[in-house]
């Protein structure tokens, strides 16, 4: 059981650091670091407040809209770029530039364009997530094995059939990997967007807690976000594993 063998050290290390945190917190070295136990208590208390619940709803909504837009735009654009040379030439430079650009710097511009509200957050999520989705979909489509395409042709498949039955399915693992990374970037996008806009959702809460030095709640909220991002990623990974029969070719 290698998994078991690996799991034990991971858990011990986590427990070790939580213990260190607790001790440092109790010693009251820094007001920034309250004891873990009081953070957990604050977290339990926090999730019952109406302000947290409505902030979560707003955040979740912005995230879902932004991600949906990123997937709906990103996957087809990437697929087209992988198949049509002209489209690749038109968008290639921009996609490659944006995928590694410090997008947070753009948020103030977005605020001017879209106002200090939810739209800006949705667009931020979209901008954070979409480029990697485009690039991965493009790579997946371009990697479709030539011999599979020749196989389709030799058995009389039309170009459209080859596209839908062979190329898209070959690209599916890359498309899903792109979406998974896009989801994680989208979480970043929603938090950064809200913090910069700072009057809606978690941004408002973060603003409130840091202004009133409510470190317990501040940390509790941060950890909840971390956990949510990890759960999301694990969910998509689980879905990727379910189509593990792809593993054989790659």
């Amino acid at each position: 059981m290698t998994l078991f063998g690996r799991r034990i050290p991971m858990m011990t290390s986590l427990i070790f650091w939580l213990l260190v945190w607790e001790i440092v917190g109790r010693l009251e070295v820094m007001f920034l670091i309250p004891p873990i136990t009081s953070i957990v208590a604050a977290g339990l208390n926090l999730v019952q407040t109406a302000s947290w619940q409505s902030a979560s709803l707003i955040t979740l909504r912005a995230f879902i809209y932004g991600m949906a837009l990123a997937i709906v735009v990103g996957v087809p654009l990437g697929v087209l770029m992988g198949r049509v040379r002209v489209i690749d030439n038109i968008f290639g430079l921009w996609v490659n530039m944006f995928v590694s650009a410090p997008l947070s710097a753009l948020v103030p511009i977005l605020m001017i364009l879209f106002g200090m509200g939810e739209t800006t957050v949705v667009v931020t999520v979209f901008l954070f997530a979409v480029w990697i989705i485009v690039l991965d979909a493009r790579a997946g489509v371009m990697q479709a094995p030539t011999s599979l395409i020749e196989m389709g042709r030799s058995y009389g498949a039309s170009r459209w059939t080859i596209f839908t039955k062979i190329i898209l399915l070959s690209a599916l693992p890359e498309i899903l990997a792109g979406i998974r990374i896009g989801l994680i970037r989208g979480v970043k996008g929603v938090v950064i967007g809200q913090i910069l806009v700072s009057i809606i959702g978690y941004g408002e809460l973060f603003e409130l807690y840091s202004r009133s030095f409510d470190m317990e709640r501040f940390w509790a909220l941060t950890m909840l976000l971390f956990a949510a991002a990890m759960l999301l990623s694990a969910g998509v990974e689980h879905f990727e594993k379910r189509i593990e029969y792809y593993a054989g070719v790659r």
Binding site: S147, E150, M151, S154, Y246
Partner: peptide, 17 residues
């Protein structure tokens, strides 16, 4: 290509899915 000819590929060309 036509239905009266069939090709067997060196790398099998099987659909992994």
């Amino acid at each position: 290509p036509g239905p009266e000819r069939a090709f067997v590929f060196q790398d099998f060309a099987l659909m992994p899915w």
